[in-house]
Design a binder for these strands. Structure first.
Lengths: 240, 240
DNA sequence: AAGTGGTCTAGACCACGGC
DNA sequence: CCGTGGTCTAGACCACTTC
């Protein structure tokens, strides 16, 4: 028999989409049973293997749980551990009154070490964005981002004081972020940092250096973050 | 046709095992091509779908990379990000001369906060193990573990100064570790800590609080770690 | 006993990669 | 062009859970 693809999508993805849609619409809640393989096969007029493939994919993504002899069920709501989120996204999830203040924005070409971390030639021009992060009107972090000035030309004209840097990169520059490698340690606040964060000179701060990679495997961003450790802890889940 | 399972193993697992064996024996190296689906199907006398299933499983585990039109290849050696490892395991992977010194070992029942983190009644007796970690004969961390004295009776008699705590828990108590939730921040060394680590009073240290869960979902261990930040950085990979 | 997921067959066509 | 992985069919038997 010929394969027919009305939407241009493989059948198993159509089936996954149909289930996800029912989940998003609230028609399906965690714990609810999903149609069985055989039911899905009938409904979508595919073979059992194809229906299986659809459910197996959803299980791999953690959307459903399959129990032999019992059925397939919507998985409990995901806890997003170790997810890379922009500051704006993180705060949106906590309903905290937050804001961000642009400290500086410019192009530099003297930061050899940072160019190296971005896998760029030593004297490449870099855009440097320095921002103060505030929660409940109290500063709690300084984040300094470095990007290739060549790859993100025009970024210095963007309204970074109003719009999330991540969303500008994603929407205006088509950047797709894949993952970040982070190096975490503790240090003491230098006078400049201490003044901006409103903490004592030599107070401990959490330092996070991120190298952010695009889905194409390219280094896209280097971010240095300094966090008041009295207001900020990092939560991580690690697996055996 | 009847399914025949000489080893009691599903065919796709037998195929995976055969490939992994060739990998471990050094016969296959990263970048090498693996037998194609069709070859595997012939060799193991299974259908194409079954051979596919075997390769798909290996790909999901990150052992191989599949490239349409090209073939299936052994994946580059894994970098273990965000893996939960005992101190002993970590150091073994770096070939560093390391050791560990038992500072104290005893049973306490007054740590309400820690009992709470382990999801135990407030006055439960807890085993407390305090150890100094050294690398190249220089101290770099203090780790304090707390366990339920009831669940791990007899542990205080174990040779913790010689044998890894993790391996004792796994082998003698049948503990299977699943994951850990960690809370990371920066703080300053108190006098006791500073003296043991050989750093200045008020020097910044990285503080990691771990709650370790068993595969049965039980909280098994609470670990407080204080790390010299001049000798130790934490590496994390986070995903979008 | 009925229904579920887990494994498997023996084919098929398609889209893509490298030669 | 040929070989590769990607998708798919229309069945089948097994092991397990639920009732």
């Amino acid at each position: 028999m010929r394969q027919v693809r009305p939407n241009g999508l493989p059948a198993y993805k159509r089936i996954q989409g149909a289930i996800l849609k029912r989940l998003e619409s609230g028609q399906l809640k965690p714990g609810d049973a999903v149609d069985s393989e055989r039911e899905l096969a009938k409904i979508h007029r595919v073979s059992l293997m194809t229906a299986r493939h659809a459910l197996a994919g959803l299980e791999r993504e953690g959307m459903v749980v399959r129990r032999r002899g019992a059925g397939t069920f919507i998985a409990p709501p995901k806890i997003h551990f170790n997810k890379l989120m922009s500051y704006t996204e993180q705060m949106a999830g906590r309903s905290l009154a937050v804001s961000s203040k642009l400290l500086s924005l410019g192009v530099i070409d003297t930061e050899q070490e940072i160019a190296a971390r971005l896998a760029l030639p030593a004297t490449s021009p870099l855009i440097k964005v320095e921002r103060l992060r505030l929660g409940a009107n109290e500063p709690f972090a300084i984040e300094t981002c470095y990007l290739s000035a060549g790859d993100f030309a025009g970024l210095t004209q963007s309204p970074l004081d109003r719009i999330s840097l991540f969303s500008i990169l994603e929407h205006d520059y088509g950047l797709e972020i894949a993952h970040a490698d982070e190096e975490i340690d503790a240090t003491t606040a230098d006078p400049h940092t201490a003044r901006l964060l409103g903490i004592a000179h030599d107070a401990p701060v959490l330092r996070i250096r991120q190298v952010i990679y695009s889905t194409k495997g390219k280094t896209a961003l280097y971010v240095l973050g300094l966090y008041r450790s009295d207001r900020h802890t990092l939560l991580i889940r690690r697996f055996r």
